[in-house]
Simulated assay, not measured.
Amino acid sequence: MKSKILGLLMICGALLFSAFLAIGDYEVTAADTTVTPVVTADVPEVVSIKLDSDGHPLTNIELSGPSPQDLQSGRFDVVNEGNVPVNIYVRSNGPTISGPRTFNIADVYFRADKQDMTNTQITGINQLLTNTAPLDIPINANPTDIIPSNHLATGLGLHLPLGSPAGEYSVSLTYTGSTI
């Protein structure tokens, strides 16, 4: 019997020894891996401009002045609403102004610049108005600036010859935003 108990103790001892070896003193180690994903955004160019007068869409331009010969509009803005910088062009629909009397388009001038209102004569072809710098995208424009970088301050003027009849005169102007 003694040998059976001794054998059983030996088996228990061997089992305990193997259990300690199996559990052991394992340290857990951590592994780090850094991944830098590359995100490609395929955003199509959007060219979008609007005419704006004090936050309101502009459809007609009213001209008035100290004399019937020198009429001027108030300031209105050409605003870049797209996602790419653009140059602004303007052109008239023809060589004349219609009304009670027909005038040559050379009597119409345009005041446009980002720094000052420089007079530019309008022609029937596309004229670059953003001659100092293109209009920036809206996200870069600082709204606290007097004229944000995505706005072009503009105005329109008309020199009527002396003795011109009173009435409504019209000329259509087309503004175009074009990527640089």
Rank of each mutant, 00 (worst) to 15 (best):
Pro85Gly: 01
Ser53Asn: 12
Arg91Cys: 07
Gly24Ser: 11
Met10Asp: 03
Asn80Trp: 07
Phe17Ser: 11
His56Gln: 11
Ala41Phe: 12
Phe17His: 05
Tyr109Ala: 04
Thr59His: 12
Leu51Met: 06
Ala14Gln: 05
Ser53Phe: 09
Asn93Trp: 09
Asn126Ser: 14
Asp113Ala: 10
Ile11Pro: 02
Ile49Phe: 14
Tyr89Glu: 00
Ile61His: 03
Asn126Thr: 05
Asn60Pro: 04
Glu45Ser: 14
Ile105Arg: 01
Gly74Trp: 00
Thr120Pro: 01
Ala14Gly: 15
Val84Gln: 04
Arg111Asp: 01
Val79Ala: 03
Ala41Ser: 12
Phe20Gly: 09
Ser92Val: 04
Leu9Ser: 13
Val78Cys: 02
Pro100Ala: 06
Asn60Ser: 12
Phe17Leu: 14
Asp42Ala: 13
Asp25Arg: 04
Leu63Trp: 05
Pro95Lys: 09
Val78Met: 04
Phe103Lys: 09
Ala19Thr: 14
Pro44Lys: 01
Leu128Thr: 03
Lys50Pro: 05
Tyr26His: 12
Asp25Tyr: 08
Ala31His: 14
Gly55Tyr: 07
Tyr109Lys: 06
Glu81Cys: 04
Ala41Gly: 08
Arg91Ile: 00
Arg111Gly: 07
Pro57Arg: 07
Phe103Pro: 09
Leu63Met: 08
Val90Lys: 00
Gly124Trp: 01
Ile105Phe: 06
Asp113Phe: 01
Ile61Met: 05
Lys50Gly: 13
Gly82Ile: 02
Ile49Val: 15
Thr40Gln: 07
Pro100Leu: 04
Pro44Tyr: 00
Tyr26Val: 12
Asp70Lys: 12
Gln121Ser: 15
Glu45Phe: 13
Leu128Asp: 05
Gly94Val: 09
Val108Phe: 07
Asn93Cys: 11
Ala22Pro: 01
Gly24Lys: 02
Phe20Pro: 03
Ser67Ile: 12
Phe103Thr: 08
Pro66Tyr: 08
Val84Asp: 00
Asn119Leu: 08
Cys12Thr: 09
Ile97Met: 14
Leu58Trp: 03
Leu15His: 03
Phe76Ile: 00
Leu129Ala: 04
Val86Met: 06
Pro57Val: 06
Ala41Thr: 11
Glu81Tyr: 06
Gly13Lys: 00
Ile61Ser: 04
Asn119Arg: 10
Gly124Cys: 06
Gln69Asp: 13
Ala22Cys: 05
Ile105Leu: 10
Gly65Ile: 06
Pro95Val: 09
Lys114Asn: 10
Phe17Trp: 09
Asp77His: 00
Phe110Thr: 02
Ser64Thr: 07
Leu21Ala: 08
Phe103Gly: 08
Pro68Ile: 03
Asn119Lys: 10
Asp107Phe: 13
Asp52Glu: 14
Gln121Leu: 13
Glu62Asp: 05
